[in-house]
Design a protein around this nucleic acid. Structure first.
Length: 573
DNA sequence: GCCGTTTTCGGCCCGACTGTTTTCAGTCG
């Protein structure tokens, strides 16, 4: 059933990105953009693209922006392990394209020139010719470009994956607070993928409205560990190892700029085209009427972000939805979801204590949850069994003992405590704890902890259908930037969950965020309910719920889709 | 190469910044 040799979506997407770079290096127009759009959608596709490829090119063409030519290439790669046309391009320009274009300021065309003129193939080659002063003599280059390349090679070597939202957001919030406190700043917000709550982010985008751009740029640059560039209306710095980009606009342009710089790129392209069909042109400075001659006319919106949508008769679209996956059509139809909010969450159904691998006692966790504002929590320590590290898992006897301890704390505190357990989902979908104990638990979370690769659709469905299981915890088992976890068809899993009345977890741990936007949307569309949990292992983890809630919003979740927006009595019944 | 309320051809987002140039190419977001 599962096939570990099958390429994952990231691998396939990277092939298409490389294709795009190599076509661009040859000065070919339009195709590079087409390949990049396809690559982005392959990377974001919730199921296994390689599994689609096994069914032939027609199945692959289901992916938006993937047509016949690209589908054929993906099938070719899955079947043979290479793509003839890509190999030919690699032969024409035998360079390490990814490594070289990772250098800031070096793109595909520069790579082509450096290979043609100086036979640069690797990062080491690039460093050598830069040090030797060979680049400065090339047409179109100079001493400054050569020096910049040399400096940026160091960052290219250490820059790996995108940053975790959970690591970057605190840095961004602090930077934002500093800018907000500046006298010249009239308005200030984070934009980009941070504002959309993507699980990982490439950089920090800060937008400022001011009448004194020079003062704001100067203040921003002063916050950086290092200056990348600074102009009259924008600047980039490096801060705690992350790039932060500032964009400065006038107060009148602020709404248009906020819309524009929040993205996503795909959302903006779609919105721009939607506007053009209605004779309105959008850019970061405003919305403009188009005249008969297709010339830009009267400015008709842009001071607020909402005005950019209002002018198109659309409701304001929450940033989490702006991924180009149908949100504009939903806004047009007046069918945008009423997204779940953090204060809709009434309790946490996945909490660990020092009975297994948590750091705090039942009482300490319950007290912290009550202080956070929860009405209830479920104590769900690990059951012993395969996939559970060391001796920390609880036996059936220990679980029964814990239930007594939980009930004792429940009787003393105002917050309601539910008994529970987190069991492991074995490779065959079985659950490792005897049914009698599971039946005695208020809440049974079943989660995959091992065998986290290959197609797990059947495995998850088997666990979902177990009569004692209430929640599937972190369903894929992914760890961001570390492992991709098991692959599954979220629609099939969602249908099974709906039929069995088992909820699928959105795990709020910033390292997991599992399920995630696309999979949540597919599961909810299939009729499934979700729960948003923190999987807290320490008292201060409850605040992570915010990451889970915004992730659920990326999956178009409303409060009614989320089981722990209900009170404890409704849950018990 | 992809796509369609211009539907099988013709168009594809666009502006800022940099470094190189005298009017622009490449990169980036």
């Amino acid at each position: 059933m599962s096939d570990d040799n099958r390429p994952d979506n990231t691998t396939l997407a990277n092939l298409l990105f490389e294709f795009a770079d190599r076509l661009e290096a040859k000065d070919i127009e339009y195709k590079p953009a087409a390949y990049r759009r396809a690559a982005e959608n392959v990377a974001e596709y919730p199921g296994s693209v390689a599994a689609l490829a096994a069914d032939g090119p027609e199945a692959v063409m289901e992916i938006d922006r993937v047509g016949e030519a690209i589908a054929d290439k993906l099938v070719e790669y899955v079947e043979t392990g290479s793509i003839e046309e890509l190999e030919a391009l690699r032969g024409e320009l035998p360079v390490e394209m990814d490594a070289l274009t990772a250098v800031e300021g070096v793109g595909p065309k520069t790579v082509a020139t450096l290979y043609r003129e100086l036979e640069v193939q690797t990062l080491a080659d690039l460093e050598r010719v830069a040090r030797n002063g060979e680049i400065r003599d090339l047409r179109g280059f100079g001493q400054t470009s050569e020096q910049n390349i040399l400096e940026n090679i160091a960052f290219a070597r250490q820059s790996d994956a995108r940053e975790l939202l959970g690591d970057t957001r605190p840095v961004a919030d602090e930077l934002l607070a500093t800018m907000e406190a500046h006298d010249a700043v009239k308005a200030c917000e984070l934009a980009g993928s941070i504002r959309r709550w993507r699980p990982t982010v490439g950089d920090i985008d800060v937008l400022v409205a001011t009448a004194d751009a020079a003062a704001v740029v100067e203040a921003f640059v002063a916050e950086g560990d290092e200056l990348i560039e600074a102009g009259e209306s924008k600047a980039s710095i490096r801060l705690d190892g992350v790039q932060a980009d500032l964009r400065v606009v006038t107060p009148e342009e602020y709404g248009a700029a906020l819309q524009y710089f929040t993205g996503s790129k795909e959302h903006n392209v779609q919105l721009r085209n939607y506007a053009l069909e209605r004779d309105v042109s959008l850019n970061e400075y405003g919305a403009f009427e188009l005249t008969d001659a297709d010339e830009t006319g009267q400015r008709i919106a842009g001071d607020t972000e909402a005005s950019m949508y209002e002018v198109l008769d659309l409701a304001w679209i929450p940033p989490e939805l702006r991924e180009g996956t149908g949100e504009i059509a939903a806004a047009e139809a007046g069918a945008l979801p009423d997204l779940v909010r953090t204060d809709d969450i009434r309790g946490d159904l996945h909490v660990h204590t020092d009975w297994s691998d948590g750091t705090a006692s039942i009482r300490e966790m319950a007290t912290a949850a009550a202080a956070f504002g929860h009405e209830y929590i479920a104590i769900t320590d690990h059951a012993d069994g395969p996939g559970v590290v060391g001796e920390m898992g609880l036996s059936a006897a220990e679980l029964r003992e814990q239930h007594t301890a939980v009930e004792a704390v429940d009787a003393e505190l105002d917050i309601d405590l539910l008994t529970g357990v987190e069991t492991n989902i074995a490779a065959d979908g079985g659950v490792s704890m005897d049914d009698g104990v599971l039946a005695a638990c208020d809440v049974v979370v079943a989660s995959p902890h091992s065998g986290l690769s290959g197609d797990g659709t059947e495995r998850l469905c088997t666990a979902i259908e177990h009569p004692a299981v209430d929640i599937i915890g972190h369903p894929s088992g992914r760890l961001l930037n570390q492992r991709s976890g098991i692959e599954f068809d979220p629609t099939v899993v969602g249908e099974a969950a709906a039929a069995a009345g088992t909820a699928l977890e959105v795990n709020s741990n910033p390292l997991r965020l599992d399920l995630w936007g696309e999979a949540i949307k597919a599961a909810i569309d299939a009729g499934a309910e979700i729960v948003i949990d923190t999987d807290a292992h320490r008292p201060n983890s409850f605040e992570h719920i915010e990451y889970g809630v915004h992730t659920a919003r990326r999956g178009w979740a409303e409060a009614a889709d989320v089981r722990n927006t209900d009170g404890v009595e409704s849950l018990r019944s």
